[in-house]
Design a protein around this nucleic acid. Structure first.
Length: 483
RNA sequence: GGUGGAGUGGCUGAGCGGCCCAAAGCAGCAGCCUGCAAAGCUGUAAAACCACGGGUUCAAAUCCCGUCUCCACCUCCA
């Protein structure tokens, strides 16, 4: 089955074919680094990370992935002013928080195929693009003599094509014209304001100022991916006006622009969108403090990327339990292999081994517009089958199931958690503690052999207080950390 | 007012004309395992009249019409 992707411009599923055979170029709108990352940012980043993984691993495409960082914007300047900080320093520090959150979740930010350009690095390209738009009759310098430059929506008949809006139904900018000809015209270049720092101002043919929000993406896609590229992604809330305006600008400049548009659904809390005004936002920091990173990743994938995802502590706990089931299987399979004298690396994915095979149900699910919940079902099916194989002492079948599970987990991005599980408890504590635990486990084993169950139970309690959980098996006892 | 999305078991959440008397997970139940637990595993077991009312069809959770409820966007937003 071929890969189908829901193109939100066409509002339909379309068969995906790269513009250039074997390669795929993706541009995703990243954050405006104005304040700390929240769960919504993470959802978007994880969704597109999984998409990237499937194109890479599942379709063997060479992926070029760009996720921009908006580091100059009204909010950044306003927040910096409120906090009496330098805006560049604020942007840099918030960006660092984003990168920390991304790396905690296993979202690559530095891999060779990934680029994370900043808006301020592309001012020159934006100016060139604005000049081109003026030349082509789709943009104009402000009518009030300021350095503002606007996109002329009236000059672009297909304006509104992305979100199916008729221009007469749009309200447009109501807070004064600033030299606009029409309320729906949007800023390409914003004149420098006297109360804004000089460092937030660049010279341009129209006077000192800074870029409007939308132009950066048009300029960066052009500079990094060319006049046309395969997929443009971002959060659903960016469809209008941001993506609509990007599309208008880029097309009006003569570029084909994105072949597919993909929008991820928003995260709600108790059914409501999280927002600063409601004060119900969940920061990345508190999210990652409340559950393991891999559980967060599992949870973020537990609803289809286009569906609304509702946050709750129960949902995270469920994700943790579900993930544990997967981890336990991989660990059991690994234990059996190790016991059989095989290399323990065999189960958890030998990189030199042949390309992993995915169950057909997993492939079908991922090819159906990246249906991760259905893909997780396929993964759990493999876990159940693998467990049955272990119970039946069919180690070959179990190893094969474990390899498949690991391969699927790699696509979904929580493969790391499986490795941890396979290596039991080490590296969470110093060697002395581990040695002590091992000694206690052995002592309890001896006590049980001696039928001194009172002693055995007291040792179990002692270990429990150290945060250690025991698992008695027929011929041995293994231990792991209790969470 | 305009544009789009959603309502599926106790919970999360797929499915979007026949393979659906509806996947998977969580919770629960039963069994296995165990000195007892915990953890783990298994399940020919149990649990959903797929918001409501009509209609189309040989066949509807899935298509059409109407109704109700909820959410998002309409120039700050992932």
């Amino acid at each position: 089955m071929a890969l189908q992707i829901f193109d939100s411009k066409a509002q339909a599923l379309r068969a995906f074919a790269p513009l250039e055979a074997g390669r795929v170029a993706i541009y995703v709108c990243g954050p405006t680094v104005q304040s700390a990352p929240h769960v919504g940012h993470l959802r978007s980043a994880v969704a597109f990370d999984i998409i990237k993984n499937w194109l890479t691993f599942g379709h063997s495409l060479s992926v070029k992935f760009v996720r921009n960082v908006t580091d100059i914007d009204d909010k950044i300047l306003a927040n910096a002013k409120d906090q009496s900080r330098d805006w560049l320093e604020l942007a840099e520090s918030v960006n660092q928080e984003f990168e920390n959150a991304y790396s905690a979740l296993g979202i690559a930010t530095t891999a060779p195929e990934i680029q994370t350009p900043k808006a301020t690095e592309f001012i020159a390209q934006m100016i060139t693009l604005i000049e081109l738009l003026i030349q082509r009759g789709h943009a104009y310098a402000a009518t009030d003599g300021s350095a503002n430059v606007f996109f002329d929506t009236a000059s672009w008949p297909s304006y509104g094509e992305l979100t199916n809006q008729k221009i007469e139904n749009l309200e447009g900018e109501q807070d004064g014209s600033h030299g606009r000809k029409s309320p729906t015209d949007f800023a390409l270049w914003k004149a420098h304001k006297s109360d804004e720092p000089d460092t937030a101002s660049w010279q341009s043919p129209w006077g000192a100022g800074r870029p409007g929000w939308h132009i950066e993406c048009s300029a960066m896609t052009h500079a990094l991916l060319g006049e046309s590229f395969d997929i443009h992604g971002g959060g659903l809330d960016l469809r209008f006006p941001h993506h609509e305006n990007e599309l208008a600008q880029s097309r009006a400049a003569g570029f084909d622009f994105a072949n597919f548009w993909m929008h991820n659904g928003l995260v709600t809390i108790a059914g409501q969108k999280m927002s600063k005004s409601l004060g119900n936002g969940i920061s990345a920091e508190s999210l990652l403090a409340s559950a393991s990173a891999s559980a967060v990743r599992y949870w973020l994938g537990s609803a289809h990327y286009r569906s609304t995802l509702d946050y709750s502590t129960t949902a995270l706990a469920e994700a943790e339990s579900a993930l544990n089931r997967i981890k336990n299987f991989v660990r059991r399979a690994s234990d059996v292999q190790t016991a059989n004298g095989q290399t323990s690396g065999g189960v958890s994915g030998d990189r030199d081994a042949a390309e992993p095979t995915y169950p057909s149900a997993f492939i079908d699910a991922m090819d159906a517009d990246f249906n991760v919940p259905a893909a997780l079902a396929a993964l759990h099916d493999a876990v159940r089958a693998g467990n049955s194989s272990l119970d039946a002492a069919d180690t070959a079948a179990a190893a094969s199931a474990a390899a498949q599970v690991t391969a699927m987990a790699r696509v979904l991005g929580f493969e790391g958690a499986l490795g941890d599980a396979a290596s039991a408890g080490a590296d969470r504590a110093d060697e002395a503690t581990v040695a002590k635990i091992d000694a206690l486990v052995l002592a309890r084993r001896q006590a049980r052999a001696d039928k001194d169950f009172a002693l055995a139970d007291s040792i179990r309690v002692e270990l429990s207080e150290l945060g250690v959980v025991l698992e008695d098996q027929a011929d041995k006892t293994t231990w792991m950390w209790s969470n």
